[in-house]
C-alpha cells in the first residue's frame, strides 16, 4: 500500500465515522468490510486496514466507544 493510498484510507475511515456520528455505530469489523470493498482496486488487504485503524486510534483521531458492544467513535 502506498503512502498516498494509506492517507486516503485513513481519511475515508475517519470521514465515515464522522458522517454517521449519532446514526450508526461502526464496529471495527464493519469498517474493515467496507474498506475492503472500497479499496479493492488498490489491492488493500484486511491487515492494511487493521493497521490503519490501529494508527488512527494510537493518534487519538478516533476512540473506542462501548454500549453493549465496542464501536468506533469521535473523541469527546
Amino acid at each position: 500500500m502506498t503512502d498516498e493510498t494509506k492517507k486516503k484510507l485513513e481519511d475515508k475511515i475517519i470521514g465515515l465515522v464522522k458522517e454517521y456520528a449519532g446514526k450508526k455505530r461502526f464496529k471495527p469489523i464493519d469498517i474493515v468490510k467496507e474498506m475492503e470493498k472500497e479499496f479493492a482496486a488498490e489491492g488493500v488487504s484486511k491487515e492494511d486496514i487493521k493497521g490503519a485503524l490501529k494508527e488512527i486510534m494510537d493518534d487519538g483521531k478516533l476512540v473506542y466507544g462501548y454500549a453493549g458492544g465496542s464501536f468506533l467513535a469521535l473523541p469527546e
Binding site: K54, M57, D58, V63, Y64, G65, Y66, S70, A73, E76
Partner: peptide, 10 residues
C-alpha cells in the same frame, strides 16, 4: 460515558 487508555479499546 467514555473512559480508556489511548490506543486500546479495552
Amino acid at each position: 460515558g467514555m473512559a480508556g487508555v489511548k490506543g486500546y479499546g479495552a
